Simulated assay, not measured.
Amino acid sequence: MNAPTALAQRLRVARLDLWIDPAFDDAIGQDASLDLQVLPANGDAVTAAGLAGAHAYHVSAAKDEVPARWQVSADLLAQCPQLLCVSSGGAGYDTVDVAACTRAGVAVVNQAGANAASVAEMTFALLLSLVKRLGESDAALRAGTAVSREALMGHEIEGRVFGIVGIGEIGRRAARIAAGFGLRVIAYDPLVPPAQIVERGAEPVSFDTLLEQADIVSLHCPLDAVTRGMFDASAFQRMKRGALFISTARGGIHDEDALLAALESGHLAGAGLDVWKVEPPPPRSGLLQRPDVIAAYHTGGVTHEGRRKVARGSATQIMDMLAGRQPARLLNPEVWPRFLQRLAECGVNPQQG
């Protein structure tokens, strides 16, 4: 890139034409130093050219929403020499290769915490639907096959052990809600010191202990090289017989075939799933055929409030970065000095940002 002494043109912010709360476009549009470009997700030359000239790229965090060629890979970065920063539209960043961005001098942010309340609430929507057998009751009433209330008898959760895997922004909210239901809360998170786990409302335990003790196992960890396939056949068999499995995290952390086998054998009593390996899952998926599975289409964080917070957070962090201010949710802080150098080459003086 050339290194002008003054900002000769507005910096370009690009996003695909996938749905986003209007708060994002409104915020970017109010910044006179920025130019927003909305590119077709199903486009080719137009989208490639738009991204090649972009300084910032906002991308959905859902891998099944974003065509592979527009996900932030090393190949895409090679075609986008002016790209300075990337914003993932969620707490996850499955569509962004953060290591490749770091090598390219590209700063990456996510929106961790923006939709945490929505996802934590979904955790208990799934759990309560499961133990109260709401899906079965609804189906029986609509079909006219309901015989007696006792035939649809459910359970209470008070007094059970609620095991959290990953006690970050969402996990800590889940812990607080669980305490309100009278659950004993335990948590496993190798990235959070035991004292902080206690501060977040849970008793710190090892992964094996959590599997052995929890009546309900709830996933709130990111999908990465460590957690991918974490819940396999062995993990499900180590869970308590009759336990429930809940995930509002990411598909791929649990093995769907192994979960199905654990349910079919009667080892587990049920599952509540908001995330899938392929989204949406095939209608004939074995898990979707079972009355002891409550299913949702990765809508835990898809609330009006959650999406608005994510959109505002994304816009704010992009505006911060392009003004030379370090953002709140920088995933690769080691890149920041190089990012500032590249930003200065575009004519932005961070000291004035």
Results as ranks from 00 to 15, higher is better:
V108M: 00
A202C: 11
A117T: 14
S137I: 13
L183N: 08
I170R: 01
A151K: 10
A174K: 12
T145R: 03
L126M: 06
T145A: 03
S137K: 10
V198S: 07
F124I: 06
P204H: 06
L183K: 08
A195L: 13
A202P: 10
V161H: 00
E156K: 09
L128N: 08
V185G: 02
A195G: 08
A179F: 07
A114W: 06
G144I: 03
R173G: 03
S148E: 10
A146D: 05
V109M: 12
V147K: 14
R176T: 14
S118H: 02
G180T: 01
S129D: 10
R133N: 11
V131R: 00
G182T: 09
E203R: 10
V109P: 05
R173S: 04
V131N: 05
L183G: 06
L130R: 00
M122T: 06
E203H: 05
Q111N: 15
P194T: 09
M122S: 07
E136C: 08
S137L: 12
E169D: 14
A151Y: 10
V198F: 10
V147I: 13
G180C: 06
R176G: 09
A117W: 12
L126D: 03
A140N: 02
A178C: 04
I170D: 00
G135M: 12
G144C: 05
A174L: 03
A143R: 07
A120V: 06
G163W: 00
I170N: 00
A179L: 13
I170V: 13
D138L: 06
R149T: 12
P190T: 06
A195H: 13
Q196K: 15
L134A: 11
E158G: 13
L191Y: 15
I197M: 09
G166Q: 09
R160S: 14
P193A: 13
I167N: 03
G144L: 00
E158V: 14
F181R: 03
A117M: 07
P193L: 07
E203Q: 14
E121P: 06
A187I: 08
R173A: 04
D189G: 04
I167H: 07
A140P: 02
G163T: 13
V147E: 09
L128D: 01
M122N: 14
V119H: 01
I170C: 01
N115Y: 05
F162R: 05
R160H: 12
N115K: 02
R184G: 00
K132Y: 08
L141M: 14
I177Y: 11
L134E: 08
A117N: 13
E136T: 12
Y188A: 07
M122H: 12
G163L: 10
V198C: 15
S129V: 01
A179R: 15
V131C: 08
R149W: 14
H155N: 15
R176A: 15
L130V: 06
V198H: 05
L183Y: 04
N110Y: 08
